[in-house]
Design a protein around this nucleic acid. Structure first.
Lengths: 346, 346
DNA sequence: CTGAAAGCGCTAACAA
DNA sequence: TTGTTAGCGCTTTCAG
């Protein structure tokens, strides 16, 4: 096995390595003749330029870092799909790493990624605000936050409209006559969860329905916590007529609990979730949920990162909020045709 | 913003860059005193060694490449979870890229990854054999195949026992009295699919049940194809008493079709799938399926890659096959307690 | 149009 | 114990 580097190519083609580099990148004019000759040797040797050597001088790796919490797997993989697609269109690849929503781990990840390995970073940090994450990071550019709390600062972020999604869903339930609407929430520390809860609260308020503390159940976005939350609800003297879960996993858990206890959905208790995960349409009854454009969120994040959206200009961050849409299925008791159209707003 | 490289650190600490490098890596003995001094400067400057510069000389990036088809999302994300976990334990990160099971794309990916960016590669290629993938690749080491067809060659691979999983499941169905057992298969080109189909065939044969061509329906592992396959089955004059789907997605699709047509499961037609995806337990009736240790497959692949398992020794590849286990739920009509234990065999 | 040479940021002999 | 120096594989001035 010979050396097989750019030098070998140069030698065999009787040119300097500079020329080889030039035909490799088309960076300067090379005579057709030598170009052919070099290309032939490259092909013959099956030569591939060494990305690291190149990156060292160009300061470009064509790699994008993606940091996300490892919960929420359907959500997660859809997001990656979107990111990967958009990245590869720009001939980038992605390095994925899941922190466990642990600040230490996020920082360590950031360090690794700052080490020059990636040209940009997409970070999803539902539990820690952007400023918290960036405490000691000099770079503020080449960074976009996804679904994170970027408290009015100069970050680029793309997220979904959690508040309105929840608001609309709860209004929908109210509109169909339910007035005792329970909620299984996500964790306090989770940004998405807080916003969704706020949407719920606002919808009640707008419709002059008083909140009932015992109907506000804690959860943590897992199927299990939905199951347990539902069990608590079923122990109440006066049961709710409807239940809104802050995500689909918990709704699925709640559904399982109701099946076990022979509660008819939506007959006795109507149910709605949030996220519109694929399984939502396969359970029985099919789950009414808030559709979230996860894939688009991924592609947009990449677009912002790579297509020259700079957050630094003028100190004001860029905040893209994707609208959600409610998709009606069977679990909420109405049976309109589902509308899954996904739109955006600036 | 000053330079902030190793040189700056060296200058401020009044040492040579070599010494800085030494305290960075603990690669040689440095006096406690200078060590302290250098460490202080590093901290003060918030200096991070440039990974690319380092990689160029060490030939180590601490990055692992993962190439997989982008179908099969629940499977996919679970596999990544396993890989990522095992990788991070060894302080590696992973670069994920999903080809679309397209040979060209796989090759291009391989090139990118061979460019020096990764120290090893995990590749899952259900449609293309290992030899096909490696046609023109010089390196055979630092490569492990996951769930791919490594035709007796000198590769390292880890896969699941598709054949026996299917065999056992079909035997289970037969054992409970079903004798007209349909199957919705995966694509011919898919290695997993072929093995599962073989398992089905073998179980029939062993039990002296003749195969009935009209009961062998084509599919492609998507929910949609399961739905369509079921619709075809329901048009048959003599319907099967049970249906085995080569994966859960298709089983879910078939289930949806049966719900639509008011076929009672398992009363009229029993159903079983393969993969044991999370949703399997939440549908109604809960889906009997073949459990696959996806996560473990990921961790084992990494272990093989990083913990010094060399395939080249003596020309014989290493082939790890993980056993599957059937988990009984409601859809097959029996109601034993489910056993989800996962074991391995060499 | 092409070659020589200087580095990119780091590690690893080899000396001192 | 520490410094000097030679690269790792490439791109990119700068001459020619």
């Amino acid at each position: 096995m010979s050396k097989n580097g750019i030098k070998e190519v140069a030698k065999r083609a009787n040119v300097s390595i500079a020329t080889v580099s030039r035909v490799l990148n088309g960076s300067a004019v090379v005579s057709e003749e030598t170009k052919q000759r070099v290309a032939a040797v490259i092909d013959e040797l099956n030569y591939m330029p060494h990305a690291i050597g190149r990156a060292l001088v160009t300061h470009k790796t064509n790699l994008l870092g993606v940091i996300l919490p490892d919960v929420h797997s359907e959500f997660f993989s859809e997001l990656i799909r979107g990111i990967d697609q958009a990245a590869r269109e720009r001939s980038y690849h992605i390095i994925v790493s899941s922190t466990h929503s642990n600040k230490k781990e996020i920082e360590s990840m950031l360090n690794v990624m700052q080490g020059g390995h990636v040209d940009g970073l997409i970070i999803m940090s539902p539990h820690i605000s952007a400023e918290g994450v960036l405490k000691r990071l000099s770079l503020l550019s080449n960074l976009v936050f996804v679904n994170s709390y970027t408290n009015g600062a100069k970050f680029v972020s793309v997220s979904i409209d959690n508040f309105n999604g929840a608001y609309q869903m709860v209004e929908h339930l109210i509109g169909h006559g339910y007035d005792r609407i329970a909620i299984i929430k996500g964790e306090e520390s989770n940004f998405d969860a807080r916003e969704r809860f706020n949407g719920y609260l606002q919808a009640l308020k707008k419709n002059r329905i008083h909140r009932i503390p015992e109907l506000e159940i804690g959860g943590n976005f897992t199927e299990e916590s939905g199951y347990e939350g539902m069990m608590k609800i079923l122990k109440l003297k006066t049961k709710p007529s409807a239940l809104f879960c802050a995500n689909d996993s918990m709704a699925l858990g709640a559904l399982r609990a109701m099946h076990e206890k022979d509660i008819i959905v939506p007959g006795e208790i109507a149910l709605a979730g949030f996220d519109d995960v694929p399984s939502a349409r396969y359970v029985l009854p099919a789950l009414t949920s808030v559709h979230v454009p996860i894939y688009e969120m991924g592609t947009i994040a990449v677009k912002h990162l790579l297509d020259g959206v700079k957050a630094m200009d003028g100190m004001k961050g860029i905040k893209k909020v994707l609208t959600t849409s409610i998709v009606i299925r069977e679990s909420c008791g109405c049976s309109l045709k589902s509308d899954e159209e996904v739109s955006e707003m600036a």
